[in-house]
């Protein structure tokens, strides 16, 4: 299972918790440059995932409110 599909079935809360952890570790520092870059990329992906969740939810609600 590639990393992408694993992300797909991440729940919103899991993605959010991991994102918070990534930010915390990046801010703590004391890690190699390579790790920092990897962490940063992971953070970006998680943030996008969370945003997709929220946008999806909002779309569902707007649709529900329409009809």
């Amino acid at each position: 299972m590639t990393e992408d599909s694993a992300d797909k079935n991440l729940s919103y809360e899991q993605a959010r918790e991991e994102l918070i952890d990534v930010v915390r570790r990046l801010e703590a520092g004391g890690i190699t440059l390579e790790e920092s870059l990897a962490l940063w990329e992971r953070g970006e992906k998680l943030a996008t995932l969370c945003q997709e969740w929220l946008d999806g939810a909002r779309k569902k609600i707007d649709a529900a409110i329409q009809d």
Binding site: R16, I20, V23, L26, E27, W40, A47, Q51
Partner: peptide
């Protein structure tokens, strides 16, 4: 989420 994304590290 916005707060997290606005952190400098991200």
């Amino acid at each position: 989420l916005d707060a997290l994304r606005s952190r400098p590290v991200l």
